[in-house]
């Protein structure tokens, strides 16, 4: 099994994980599960960055992964705080009940 095939398999795996995340965002109604699907999509993109970094032999893509991880951590903290704030007012986690910004 050559490294070329492994890199290509990693890219296909990254694609499959991303699609699972997209389908999950459409399918689930619990806002926390939807949020976890977004995290899954970020992970899938990280995997493709690492695979491309391996293929090209440079480290710039891995630095990008580092920044994606940082942004994901910040996003999780702020997003979960927003979910807690809305849950305090609406007393539900159903995504259909979150229509504060709809006119």
């Amino acid at each position: 099994m050559s490294p070329d095939r492994i890199v290509q398999s990693a890219l296909l795996l990254s694609l499959a994980l991303f699609v699972v995340g997209v389908v999950g965002v459409f399918l689930r109604r619990n806002v926390i599960t939807v949020f976890m699907c977004v995290e899954l999509m970020l992970n899938a993109v990280n995997l493709s960055f690492v695979a491309f970094s391996r293929a090209l032999g440079t480290l710039d893509a891995q630095v990008l992964v580092f920044f994606v991880l940082t942004v994901a951590a910040a996003e999780a903290a702020v997003g979960l705080a927003i979910i807690i704030a809305i849950h305090r007012h609406r007393d539900t986690l159903d995504l259909d009940a979150f229509n504060l910004m709809k006119w």
Binding site: D4, L11, V19, V23, R54, A55, G57
Partner: peptide, 20 residues
Amino acid sequence: GALLLAQLGAVIAGIRPQVA
């Protein structure tokens, strides 16, 4: 999801990465 998988899968299956 199947549409996205098919489109991007066709692109990825077409490339032949040359690992450094």
